[in-house]
């Protein structure tokens, strides 16, 4: 059995980010704001315009990631990992990812994927992005059911009237 906590946190070269020690929501918000442009660019590279799936930019999937991680039901270790994995990627790319060409971005992401830690982080970002794109439109990232329409697969009825069962 994989020990998730060890794998996610101690696997990082940078070690624990300040966010992991911080307990207030403010600190998460601050940490997220720092990584947000990079996360958004990674998602856009994974889900570009012109694909058979909706684009990340059109579906507000970065906002979804931000919101879902703030819900109490979200695993706190994964929450820290998303932030920390992005920080590490930013460090590896020396803060230049946003200005890279598509080919350079591909190369940088594939290089990150070569590491166990980077591969795990990219898997997590893929999962979170798809959670947004293919969850009920109430969560804000499956706009006008575009995600469902693209794969001709729809959620069932009744649809939720509140997010996270109103919890």
């Amino acid at each position: 059995m994989i020990k998730r906590r060890h794998f996610l946190i101690l696997g990082s070269i940078l070690g624990l980010s300040p966010y992991v020690y911080a307990k207030t929501d403010d600190s998460f918000e601050r940490a997220f704001k720092k990584i947000e442009p990079t996360l958004k660019a990674v998602q856009a590279h994974m889900f570009p315009q012109g694909s058979k799936l909706p684009s990340a930019d059109a579906m507000h999937v970065t906002q979804f990631v931000y919101e879902t991680m703030q819900h109490p039901s979200f695993d706190r270790d994964i929450k820290a990992f998303v932030i920390e994995g992005a920080e590490e990627f930013m460090q590896r790319t020396k803060g230049k990812f946003l200005s890279m060409t598509t080919a350079e971005k591909e190369k940088a992401l594939r290089a990150y994927e070569e590491t166990n830690y980077g591969s795990s982080w990219l898997e997590r970002i893929m999962t979170l992005t798809m959670e947004g794109m293919f969850s009920d439109p109430i969560y804000g990232a499956n706009i006008k059911e575009a995600g469902w329409k693209s794969i001709d697969s729809y959620g069932g009825f009744p649809r939720p009237s509140t997010k996270y069962m109103g919890r």
Partner: peptide, 9 residues
Amino acid sequence: EFSKDELAY
């Protein structure tokens, strides 16, 4: 109150 909310359930 039940729904088919994949994310939640």
